[in-house]
Design a protein around this nucleic acid. Structure first.
Lengths: 244, 244
DNA sequence: CGGATTTTTGATGATTTTCAATATGAGTGG
DNA sequence: CCACTCATATTGAAAATCATCAAAAATCCG
């Protein structure tokens, strides 16, 4: 069903989670039938974002969580009194966007589409009414947040005391795993983010990212044509990650 | 060995949150009177941890959250197939320990006391029963996790594309703010963590930490005698953080 | 097809790590 | 309470990784 982008009024009644292919990896995955039905009915489906458009803008009022349907986004923070932006995370289909705004009046980070992206919108006010009666929903949310927390700790490890090669290897392995969980190939996928985005995320200069990817290719562990990546040796990447 | 198993006999009936000086910064802060009473009654008070003892051991079963009463702890991750440990966080009184284990069977990280430390133990099984009837409790938990998430993103920014001086400045400013929130001086406090811990947390060699702290002292923004820190110029630290 | 963005590649330099030695501090037992 | 020992912290010199600057090549998009 192609939503008419000019007309935000035409939206389906709910998101029809039960027939959504992402149901198994989405926030909705472990909900009771009752909770799922209620959650579904409160999901909005805004028109798709184009590359570069913001889903969330840092400093704006926090109102909603978002579930990624297709496409991908990056989360970006501009620290106080700083010119430069830092990429602090990427979101793939099935992932929950906006958790770091819960309990805050304003969004602490921006979230920007890296390609054409569809999301479901989940107004937080409705949600918090709902989980009064649905412990399974608040548990699901807690689990999501806990998982994101683990992801951040993992990222911190990756950036602490590791070489550029180890960081890139860890990054690619992480992406590979996430794609696999979503039913995509873990060996072959498109990087929606630029070298600059990757560098910012890993604490490296974009030139370093480019050079290390080139080195990986020459070593035969990956093949990469601009943003089309093929992992030739998962083991090779793991070895690099665990080097020394 | 976990001190929580040592002396289960001597425990008060509940933690008496209502008279606890940390009530205003603890998980308990925004609970309804009813929820607070119930939560209080399910808190255990294990015997204190001595410096170096583990509250949580990576890989062990996840069973409880902990609320820090006094002292401080560090969270440590040993990535798969790696010798080296990474410090991914520090916990001060009033903070909630163990959130990243929610929804997991095993703890993804260890948490170790950096000095003599008292905690309240909150068995997660009891907790999850409770928040079926107490939405205010699940909201409090969500807010805590969201806050920790924001802290991690902040940490990622600090480690991405910043000099050693900026990282240290940001680290000290963050600590200062947290001490102030706990009613301590924001200008004068004791660093419970070693130079090595700080370095691991910031992605720096311990020698670099030592050198930069020395530089800060010579510049007159701090005064530091081993672990006794005095911030002479908050503005100076902020200027360093935002440099360039 | 053409302009703009992104990526690659090279040369240089600076920050930070590493190695090593010393100094200081904390904890322990006599 | 002091001496002793282990852990932690400081400081120096050398090496290495990575950032920066600069320019060319490739890719994307309308």
């Amino acid at each position: 069903m192609t939503a008419t982008e000019q007309d935000p009024g035409t939206r389906l009644p709910g998101a029809q989670c039960d027939v959504c292919s992402l149901h198994g990896v989405c926030l909705t995955q472990d909900l009771s039938a009752d909770a799922l039905e209620r959650l579904d009915s409160m999901l909005d489906q805004p028109s798709p974002l184009k590359r570069g458009e913001s889903l969330i803008t840092q400093g704006n009022a926090f109102t909603s969580l978002y579930l990624v349907r297709s496409g991908s986004l990056k989360q970006v923070v501009r620290p106080l009194g700083q010119e430069l932006e830092h990429v602090v995370g990427f979101y793939l289909p099935g992932e929950t966007v906006g958790l770091e705004g819960i309990g805050e009046s304003h969004c602490p980070a921006s979230v920007v589409a890296m390609e054409t992206t569809f999301v479901c919108e989940l107004p937080y006010a409705r949600l918090s009414e709902l989980y009064c009666n649905n412990p399974s929903l608040s548990e699901s949310l807690l689990h999501r947040m806990s998982r994101e927390l683990r992801g951040e700790k993992r990222q911190l490890c990756l950036m602490s005391g590791r070489t550029a090669e180890q960081r890139l290897a860890g990054f690619l392995l992480g992406l590979s795993e996430r794609f696999q969980q979503r039913g995509c190939s873990r060996y072959r996928f498109r990087l929606a983010m630029s070298r600059g985005d990757i560098g910012s995320h890993l604490g490296l200069a974009l030139e370093t990212v480019s050079r290390v990817l080139g080195r990986f290719q020459r070593q035969g562990v990956i093949q990469i044509a601009t943003r089309e990546l093929t992992i030739l040796s998962l083991e090779g990447l793991r070895a690099i990650l665990e080097e020394h």
